[in-house]
Protein backbone atom coordinates (compact mmCIF):
# COMPACT_ATOMS: atom_id res chain seq x y z
CA UNK A 1 0.00 0.00 0.00
CA UNK A 2 1.18 3.47 -0.75
CA UNK A 3 1.86 5.75 2.13
CA UNK A 4 -0.93 8.17 2.89
CA UNK A 5 1.33 10.96 1.80
CA UNK A 6 2.12 9.30 -1.47
CA UNK A 7 -1.50 8.66 -1.99
CA UNK A 8 -2.29 12.24 -1.22
CA UNK A 9 0.36 13.49 -3.60
CA UNK A 10 -0.97 11.16 -6.23
CA UNK A 11 -4.41 12.55 -5.78
CA UNK A 12 -3.22 16.07 -6.05
CA UNK A 13 -1.44 15.25 -9.26
CA UNK A 14 -4.55 13.62 -10.57
CA UNK A 15 -6.88 16.48 -9.75
CA UNK A 16 -4.58 19.21 -10.75
CA UNK A 17 -5.45 20.90 -13.95
CA UNK A 18 -8.99 19.89 -14.40
CA UNK A 19 -10.74 19.42 -11.11
CA UNK A 20 -10.28 21.64 -8.12
CA UNK A 21 -7.92 20.46 -5.53
CA UNK A 22 -7.56 21.46 -1.91
CA UNK A 23 -4.69 23.89 -1.65
CA UNK A 24 -1.63 22.03 -0.29
CA UNK A 25 -0.66 25.16 1.60
CA UNK A 26 -3.91 25.09 3.53
CA UNK A 27 -3.56 21.43 4.37
CA UNK A 28 -0.02 21.88 5.54
CA UNK A 29 -0.89 25.00 7.44
CA UNK A 30 -3.75 23.57 9.38
CA UNK A 31 -1.98 20.32 10.20
CA UNK A 32 1.42 21.74 11.11
CA UNK A 33 0.32 24.80 12.99
CA UNK A 34 -2.27 22.69 14.81
CA UNK A 35 0.44 20.32 15.88
CA UNK A 36 2.69 23.17 16.96
CA UNK A 37 0.03 24.96 18.97
CA UNK A 38 -1.10 21.64 20.41
CA UNK A 39 2.40 21.04 21.70
CA UNK A 40 2.61 24.57 23.05
CA UNK A 41 -0.64 24.05 24.96
CA UNK A 42 0.93 21.18 26.90
CA UNK A 43 4.19 22.97 27.36
CA UNK A 44 2.40 26.05 28.57
CA UNK A 45 0.28 24.12 30.97
CA UNK A 46 3.45 22.62 32.30
CA UNK A 47 2.28 19.09 31.77
CA UNK A 48 5.70 18.62 30.54
CA UNK A 49 8.16 21.14 31.85
CA UNK A 50 11.40 20.68 30.02
CA UNK A 51 14.36 22.81 30.71
CA UNK A 52 17.64 23.40 29.04
CA UNK A 53 18.21 21.52 25.83
CA UNK A 54 14.92 19.66 26.20
CA UNK A 55 13.12 22.97 26.39
CA UNK A 56 15.01 24.30 23.43
CA UNK A 57 14.04 21.24 21.42
CA UNK A 58 10.43 21.04 22.49
CA UNK A 59 9.64 24.74 22.49
CA UNK A 60 11.64 25.00 19.28
CA UNK A 61 9.47 22.28 17.79
CA UNK A 62 6.29 23.99 18.93
CA UNK A 63 7.35 27.38 17.63
CA UNK A 64 8.80 25.81 14.50
CA UNK A 65 5.69 23.90 13.59
CA UNK A 66 3.38 26.77 14.39
CA UNK A 67 5.64 29.12 12.43
CA UNK A 68 6.01 26.74 9.52
CA UNK A 69 2.26 26.49 9.39
CA UNK A 70 1.94 30.23 9.36
CA UNK A 71 4.50 30.49 6.60
CA UNK A 72 2.70 27.81 4.63
CA UNK A 73 -0.49 29.79 5.10
CA UNK A 74 1.22 32.88 3.81
CA UNK A 75 1.89 30.96 0.61
CA UNK A 76 -1.80 30.79 0.20
CA UNK A 77 -2.12 34.55 0.18
CA UNK A 78 -2.16 36.59 -2.95
CA UNK A 79 -0.56 39.48 -1.12
CA UNK A 80 1.50 38.27 1.83
CA UNK A 81 3.12 41.70 2.02
CA UNK A 82 -0.17 43.04 3.36
CA UNK A 83 -0.43 40.32 5.99
CA UNK A 84 -0.24 42.79 8.85
CA UNK A 85 -3.70 44.01 7.91
CA UNK A 86 -5.00 40.61 8.91
CA UNK A 87 -4.56 41.59 12.54
CA UNK A 88 -7.09 44.34 12.35
CA UNK A 89 -10.49 42.68 12.08
CA UNK A 90 -10.54 40.50 15.20
CA UNK A 91 -13.93 41.89 16.14
CA UNK A 92 -15.66 39.93 13.42
CA UNK A 93 -13.28 37.70 11.55
CA UNK A 94 -12.11 34.33 12.82
CA UNK A 95 -9.20 34.48 10.43
CA UNK A 96 -8.12 37.77 11.92
CA UNK A 97 -8.71 36.37 15.42
CA UNK A 98 -6.56 33.41 14.55
CA UNK A 99 -3.77 35.71 13.49
CA UNK A 100 -4.05 37.84 16.60
CA UNK A 101 -4.35 34.84 18.88
CA UNK A 102 -1.48 33.03 17.22
CA UNK A 103 0.75 36.02 17.60
CA UNK A 104 -0.41 36.59 21.15
CA UNK A 105 0.14 32.96 22.04
CA UNK A 106 3.62 32.98 20.62
CA UNK A 107 4.52 36.27 22.27
CA UNK A 108 3.05 35.47 25.64
CA UNK A 109 4.61 32.04 25.69
CA UNK A 110 8.03 33.37 24.69
CA UNK A 111 9.25 34.44 28.15
CA UNK A 112 8.06 31.15 29.58
CA UNK A 113 9.88 29.27 26.86
CA UNK A 114 13.04 31.35 27.16
CA UNK A 115 13.04 31.18 30.87
CA UNK A 116 12.51 27.40 30.76
CA UNK A 117 15.29 26.92 28.28
CA UNK A 118 17.88 29.29 29.54
CA UNK A 119 17.07 29.83 33.19
CA UNK A 120 15.46 26.46 33.87
CA UNK A 121 12.65 28.47 35.40
CA UNK A 122 9.25 28.04 33.83
CA UNK A 123 6.96 31.02 34.25
CA UNK A 124 3.69 29.21 34.92
CA UNK A 125 1.38 32.22 34.74
CA UNK A 126 2.62 33.19 31.32
CA UNK A 127 2.68 29.50 30.40
CA UNK A 128 -0.94 29.03 31.33
CA UNK A 129 -1.97 32.20 29.62
CA UNK A 130 0.02 31.14 26.55
CA UNK A 131 -1.62 27.72 26.66
CA UNK A 132 -5.06 29.27 26.73
CA UNK A 133 -4.11 31.51 23.82
CA UNK A 134 -2.67 28.55 21.90
CA UNK A 135 -5.83 26.60 22.53
CA UNK A 136 -7.85 29.58 21.39
CA UNK A 137 -5.72 29.79 18.26
CA UNK A 138 -6.57 26.22 17.37
CA UNK A 139 -10.19 26.92 18.05
CA UNK A 140 -10.02 30.02 15.85
CA UNK A 141 -8.53 27.97 13.04
CA UNK A 142 -11.40 25.53 13.38
CA UNK A 143 -13.93 28.33 13.52
CA UNK A 144 -12.67 29.78 10.25
CA UNK A 145 -14.17 26.72 8.65
CA UNK A 146 -16.99 25.97 11.04
CA UNK A 147 -18.50 29.40 10.53
CA UNK A 148 -18.85 28.92 6.79
CA UNK A 149 -22.48 28.14 6.35
CA UNK A 150 -22.05 27.73 2.64
CA UNK A 151 -20.17 24.51 3.38
CA UNK A 152 -22.69 22.58 5.42
CA UNK A 153 -20.23 19.84 6.29
CA UNK A 154 -17.99 22.32 8.03
CA UNK A 155 -20.75 24.39 9.52
CA UNK A 156 -21.30 21.99 12.41
CA UNK A 157 -20.33 21.60 16.06
CA UNK A 158 -18.18 18.60 15.15
CA UNK A 159 -15.63 20.66 13.28
CA UNK A 160 -13.88 22.35 16.25
CA UNK A 161 -13.48 19.08 18.19
CA UNK A 162 -11.67 17.51 15.27
CA UNK A 163 -9.25 20.42 15.01
CA UNK A 164 -8.79 20.72 18.74
CA UNK A 165 -8.36 17.02 19.39
CA UNK A 166 -6.05 16.59 16.45
CA UNK A 167 -3.83 19.38 17.69
CA UNK A 168 -3.93 18.29 21.30
CA UNK A 169 -3.38 14.62 20.52
CA UNK A 170 -0.51 15.33 18.19
CA UNK A 171 0.88 17.84 20.65
CA UNK A 172 0.64 15.36 23.48
CA UNK A 173 2.42 12.74 21.44
CA UNK A 174 5.10 15.24 20.57
CA UNK A 175 5.41 16.05 24.21
CA UNK A 176 5.62 12.28 24.77
CA UNK A 177 2.65 12.34 27.12
CA UNK A 178 1.85 8.75 26.34
CA UNK A 179 -1.36 8.22 28.26
CA UNK A 180 -2.77 11.60 27.50
CA UNK A 181 -1.91 11.18 23.83
CA UNK A 182 -3.43 7.73 23.83
CA UNK A 183 -6.80 8.94 25.15
CA UNK A 184 -6.73 12.00 22.97
CA UNK A 185 -6.07 9.81 19.93
CA UNK A 186 -9.09 7.73 20.84
CA UNK A 187 -11.16 10.88 21.31
CA UNK A 188 -9.87 12.20 18.00
CA UNK A 189 -10.94 8.99 16.29
CA UNK A 190 -14.41 9.38 17.74
CA UNK A 191 -14.53 13.04 16.73
CA UNK A 192 -13.49 12.27 13.18
CA UNK A 193 -16.09 9.58 12.91
CA UNK A 194 -18.74 11.88 14.30
CA UNK A 195 -17.68 14.61 11.90
CA UNK A 196 -17.94 12.31 8.92
CA UNK A 197 -21.16 10.71 9.92
CA UNK A 198 -22.82 14.00 10.72
CA UNK A 199 -21.14 15.60 7.72
CA UNK A 200 -22.57 13.13 5.27
CA UNK A 201 -26.04 14.35 6.14
CA UNK A 202 -25.23 17.98 6.58
CA UNK A 203 -25.84 19.07 3.01
CA UNK A 204 -29.27 17.57 2.99
CA UNK A 205 -30.22 18.99 6.36
CA UNK A 206 -28.90 22.43 5.48
CA UNK A 207 -31.72 22.48 2.94
CA UNK A 208 -29.97 24.06 -0.03
CA UNK A 209 -30.88 22.47 -3.34
CA UNK A 210 -30.79 23.43 -6.98
CA UNK A 211 -34.38 24.42 -6.33
CA UNK A 212 -33.59 26.91 -3.57
CA UNK A 213 -30.43 28.08 -5.29
CA UNK A 214 -32.38 29.10 -8.35
CA UNK A 215 -35.73 29.69 -6.71
CA UNK A 216 -37.21 27.51 -9.43
CA UNK A 217 -37.80 24.49 -7.26
CA UNK A 218 -41.52 25.04 -7.05
CA UNK A 219 -41.82 24.76 -10.83
CA UNK A 220 -40.25 21.35 -11.18
CA UNK A 221 -37.00 19.46 -11.00
CA UNK A 222 -34.12 21.81 -11.65
CA UNK A 223 -31.04 20.66 -13.53
CA UNK A 224 -28.08 22.61 -14.87
CA UNK A 225 -28.27 22.64 -18.64
CA UNK A 226 -25.30 24.81 -19.44
CA UNK A 227 -22.65 26.25 -17.18
CA UNK A 228 -22.17 29.97 -17.66
CA UNK A 229 -18.90 29.57 -19.49
CA UNK A 230 -17.40 26.66 -21.36
CA UNK A 231 -14.08 27.95 -20.03
CA UNK A 232 -13.00 27.26 -16.47
CA UNK A 233 -13.25 29.56 -13.51
CA UNK A 234 -11.89 30.25 -10.05
CA UNK A 235 -14.96 28.97 -8.26
CA UNK A 236 -14.86 25.58 -9.93
CA UNK A 237 -11.18 25.28 -9.31
CA UNK A 238 -11.40 26.36 -5.70
CA UNK A 239 -14.70 25.04 -4.46
CA UNK A 240 -16.28 22.48 -6.65
CA UNK A 241 -14.43 19.22 -6.06
CA UNK A 242 -15.80 15.91 -6.94
CA UNK A 243 -14.17 13.27 -4.88
CA UNK A 244 -15.14 9.75 -5.76
CA UNK A 245 -17.13 8.00 -3.05
CA UNK A 246 -14.88 4.95 -3.12
CA UNK A 247 -11.74 6.99 -2.78
CA UNK A 248 -13.26 9.02 -0.01
CA UNK A 249 -14.01 5.86 1.94
CA UNK A 250 -10.47 4.64 1.42
CA UNK A 251 -9.05 7.94 2.57
CA UNK A 252 -11.31 7.97 5.61
CA UNK A 253 -9.96 4.58 6.57
CA UNK A 254 -6.45 5.89 6.16
CA UNK A 255 -7.20 9.03 8.13
CA UNK A 256 -8.88 7.14 10.92
CA UNK A 257 -6.42 4.26 10.91
CA UNK A 258 -3.19 6.20 10.56
CA UNK A 259 -4.38 9.36 12.25
CA UNK A 260 -5.90 7.90 15.40
CA UNK A 261 -6.21 4.12 15.68
CA UNK A 262 -2.67 3.15 14.82
CA UNK A 263 -1.08 5.83 17.04
CA UNK A 264 -3.39 4.84 19.87
CA UNK A 265 -2.43 1.21 19.45
CA UNK A 266 1.26 1.99 19.27
CA UNK A 267 1.03 4.17 22.32
CA UNK A 268 -1.00 1.58 24.15
CA UNK A 269 1.41 -1.21 23.32
CA UNK A 270 4.64 0.56 24.07
CA UNK A 271 5.71 3.81 25.55
CA UNK A 272 9.11 3.70 23.89
CA UNK A 273 10.45 6.57 21.83
CA UNK A 274 10.30 4.48 18.71
CA UNK A 275 6.62 3.78 19.23
CA UNK A 276 5.97 7.44 19.94
CA UNK A 277 7.90 8.43 16.83
CA UNK A 278 6.01 5.90 14.73
CA UNK A 279 2.73 6.99 16.26
CA UNK A 280 3.56 10.57 15.43
CA UNK A 281 4.45 9.77 11.86
CA UNK A 282 1.28 7.79 11.35
CA UNK A 283 -0.73 10.52 12.99
CA UNK A 284 0.79 13.17 10.75
CA UNK A 285 0.08 11.15 7.62
CA UNK A 286 -3.42 10.41 8.81
CA UNK A 287 -4.07 14.03 9.57
CA UNK A 288 -2.86 15.10 6.14
CA UNK A 289 -5.33 12.62 4.66
CA UNK A 290 -8.04 13.84 7.01
CA UNK A 291 -7.36 17.45 6.13
CA UNK A 292 -7.25 16.69 2.45
CA UNK A 293 -10.62 15.05 2.78
CA UNK A 294 -11.83 17.92 4.91
CA UNK A 295 -11.34 20.19 1.93
CA UNK A 296 -12.07 17.73 -0.81
CA UNK A 297 -15.35 16.64 0.70
CA UNK A 298 -16.34 20.16 1.56
CA UNK A 299 -19.28 20.47 -0.74
CA UNK A 300 -19.90 24.14 -1.18
CA UNK A 301 -23.44 25.15 -1.99
CA UNK A 302 -22.12 27.08 -4.97
CA UNK A 303 -21.77 23.68 -6.62
CA UNK A 304 -25.55 23.78 -6.98
CA UNK A 305 -25.12 26.47 -9.59
CA UNK A 306 -22.75 24.23 -11.51
CA UNK A 307 -24.79 21.07 -11.46
CA UNK A 308 -22.40 19.49 -9.01
CA UNK A 309 -24.61 17.57 -6.67
Amino acid sequence: MRSPLGCWAGWIARWKGYKMHPAPSLILFTVLSGLGFGLLVWLGLGLRAPTGLGAIILFGLGYGLAGAGLIAAAFHLGHPERALLAFTQWRSSWLSREAVLALAALVVMAPHAASSAFAATPLPVLGWLGAVLALATILATAMIYAQIRAVPRWHHWSTPPVFLLAALAGGAALAAQITLALWLMVALGVAMLAHWLAGDRRFATAGSTAGTATGLGALGRVRLLEPPHSGRNYLLREMVHEVGRKHAQKLRLIALGAGAVLPALLLALSGGYLAVALALLAHLGGMLAQRWLFFAEAEHVVGLYYGKR
Binding site: L77, G78, I148, N233, Y234, L235, V302
Partner: peptide
Protein backbone atom coordinates in the same frame (compact mmCIF):
# COMPACT_ATOMS: atom_id res chain seq x y z
CA UNK B 1 -6.19 46.08 1.57
CA UNK B 2 -6.95 42.64 0.21
CA UNK B 3 -4.39 39.95 1.02
CA UNK B 4 -5.98 37.51 -1.40
CA UNK B 5 -6.75 34.90 1.24
CA UNK B 6 -9.90 33.81 -0.59
CA UNK B 7 -11.94 33.25 2.53
CA UNK B 8 -14.71 35.63 1.52
CA UNK B 9 -15.26 33.66 -1.66
CA UNK B 10 -15.73 30.55 0.44
CA UNK B 11 -18.14 32.36 2.68
CA UNK B 12 -20.36 33.48 -0.17
CA UNK B 13 -22.97 30.83 -0.93
CA UNK B 14 -23.62 32.24 -4.39
CA UNK B 15 -20.23 32.12 -6.01
CA UNK B 16 -20.27 35.85 -6.45
CA UNK B 17 -16.61 36.46 -5.73
CA UNK B 18 -13.68 35.53 -7.89
CA UNK B 19 -10.00 35.92 -7.16
CA UNK B 20 -8.21 37.55 -10.01
CA UNK B 21 -5.28 35.40 -11.03
CA UNK B 22 -3.14 38.26 -12.23
CA UNK B 23 -3.84 40.92 -9.60
Amino acid sequence: ACIGCGLCAWACPYGAREMDSAA
